[in-house]
Design a protein around this nucleic acid. Structure first.
Lengths: 353, 353
DNA sequence: GGCTACCCGGGAAACGTTTTCATGGGATTG
DNA sequence: CAATCCCATGAAAACGTTTCCCGGGTAGCC
């Protein structure tokens, strides 16, 4: 029987130990002032009663909750019906790895993670996010969760760091160097492999990441005088299902395969690989495929996926560190932090490995 | 410049709207009593000031934080060096899907998730978990995070629901029906496929799940008079790397392949499939492979993985609902909830599909 | 041995809400 | 038109901590 309604407070501990609540508080917070004997008496009482101080009261009094809120997007479909890729948005795994990075960094500082996901087109999201702001010392907001106005509004109460978005007057942004990564990958494909027919399966059109990546490819291919297949029919929306659909459509239309299908992220590439396999098309013999992100499964796909590694976990950790500084009252010099990426050559582009 | 040190309180709103703080509170909480005119004045003030009430004060006063704590195990290695499967414990994906289930259910009730992972052998975990208890209205504790004593101790402050563990006098447990699932799978392999040489790559020896699953297989094979390969050399520890190691060792020793390698979970099966492919061994032609859990990627492996589906997300959702009932002061009849599993036949066991 | 200087510990005021209780005014009814 | 009831509002008391500010005892110093 879980004994709820148990009003065990610091007063009970104080009485039990024969000291004042002030002393109990001091001992609990590891202050140096109580002398060993007093300290031991209090500790004994705490142990005996299994006392755990109330976080809300602590937060209210000390003006520090030791909680950092993280808001991220959830895939459209939450249906558990197992049809195809219905339940897998590409941003999903990605976001989860970031969150782990945040959690690890947060824990170092004694902070916990308050987590909430948001439907992409959820109408009442602002109040939900506002509630999160009220419950935490600062907010880490993933891409496309809130518009700039929303960010600025909430930033009035708590410091905010955005992830993979764009900085506002009131918030700081953390992202990876998409442009450099995509440039390096394209360079590899064009120069090392000599590909001349390239397609790009794009992510959400309004995602800053996607915009950067597409621009990098376009710049590179244009420089090399290469035609780039892109546009509406090459829209994968960061999802495995989107990637699969693009390939299916391509085959259905009898359109010839490009030399390489570059995907906006790994998740899309998974869908592309899957669909190609379904149609009996070999990778990389018939067509090469590349991803972006280097999510953990990327190296276990067959063939193993060539991609650009983002320091995903570090992205999260960095976001937390920035936020922590803000909570501490610092005023960081930069409005944006850009982390480096690295090219990972595996077999799906035709490299040995 | 993120305006921190911003002491915007309910008093400011009240003054701005020309009413008392009580009225502001009533409007904010959607009570019916304030009349439309007053309500509108308050809302206007709230909008204008971008006021967000403080969660800690709210929690303290109303004795409800609207936060549910979730504590789960983190993989041993957090190293980001990409060597093999170093960073992938099988329980990882599994835990994450559960957590999503919790989050979805929680959000329905207006609760947020306070998340914290714990190193398997982390020494100072008790205080960390205690802090979580202080910050939440109830705790959901994954398998192997805390011993029974720890659970009972914390249950004095908040209600606790364990996941995939065993119920204690003070907590309720939620799990899937491992025994029935494994029995059905074994039956399928023995009867439908006629396999007579079966190996079981086990999970953590002390995991309740693993114990149930192993026992189910043993019972079934014994009934059928079939020899079961198991023991120290078939220890996968729920990890992809563990599964791969088992296969590598097997090949190195020149031991003949069994008819089927049954894995304690899908993650282990991923490692097994990977290692088999490395050695040029075909699945299911040369050896069949099965998993357990039906994590999302299971259906995208090649060959597609035959496994037993646990309603993973539902596990999380159910845990939350139980906890919510406890928080509400209910005293549920059962100390344990067992959710049904289903056999998923795909190609890795030799079935058509 | 008296005075000052410390240091430990206690009383009490904050922290920002919710909620109880009392009050007054308006509407309803006879 | 008067008496009654009701309902919207405000004042103030919780909620469980932390922390400021003192008092009293002890030790050190001359």
């Amino acid at each position: 029987m879980p004994s709820s309604g148990n009003p065990l407070t610091i007063y009970d501990v104080a009485r039990h130990a024969g000291v004042s609540i002030a002393s109990v508080s001091r001992v609990l917070n590891g202050l140096e002032s109580p002398r060993p004997e007093t300290r031991e008496r209090v500790m004994a009482a705490v142990r005996e009663l299994d006392f755990v101080p109330d976080g809300a009261a602590r937060a209210l009094s000390s003006r520090l909750k030791e909680v950092v809120g993280v808001v991220f997007r959830r895939p459209f479909q939450q249906s558990m019906s197992g049809s195809g890729f219905a339940d897998e948005d590409g941003s999903l795994l990605f976001a989860e790895v970031i969150n782990r990075g945040v959690e690890l960094a947060a824990r170092e500082r004694g902070f916990d993670l308050l987590l909430s996901s948001v439907d992409v087109y959820e109408p009442g999201r602002q109040p939900r996010v506002a509630a999160m702001a009220g419950k935490s010392d600062g907010l880490i907001v993933h891409d496309k969760v809130l518009g700039p106005e929303g960010i600025i509004r909430l930033a009035k109460r708590v410091p905010i760091v955005t992830l993979v978005g764009t900085p506002t007057a009131a918030s700081i942004n953390v992202r990876a160097d998409n442009t450099a990564g995509m440039r390096e990958l394209t360079q590899h494909l064009v120069v090392d492999h000599g590909f001349t027919d390239i397609a790009y399966v794009a992510g959400h059109a309004d995602s800053p990441d996607n915009i950067d990546r597409a621009a990098a490819i376009e710049a590179q291919t244009e420089d090399a005088g290469i035609k780039l297949r892109t546009g509406a029919r090459w829209q994968g929306n960061y999802m495995a299902s989107g990637g699969a659909k693009v390939v299916d459509q391509l085959i259905a239309d009898g359109e010839p395969l490009p030399d390489v299908i570059m995907c906006a992220n790994d998740q899309t590439a998974i869908g592309v690989l899957y669909a190609l396999a379904e149609h009996g098309i070999r990778v990389p013999e018939d067509v090469a495929v590349t991803g972006f992100d280097d999510i953990p499964v990327a190296r276990h796909l067959r063939p193993r996926l060539t991609t650009v590694r983002q320091p995903i976990q570090q992205l999260g950790a960095t976001a937390f560190e920035m936020l922590y500084a803000l909570i501490d009252g610092d005023h960081p010099a930069e409005r944006e932090l850009v982390l480096p990426t690295t090219l990972v050559r595996r077999s799906s582009c035709g490299c040995p490995s």
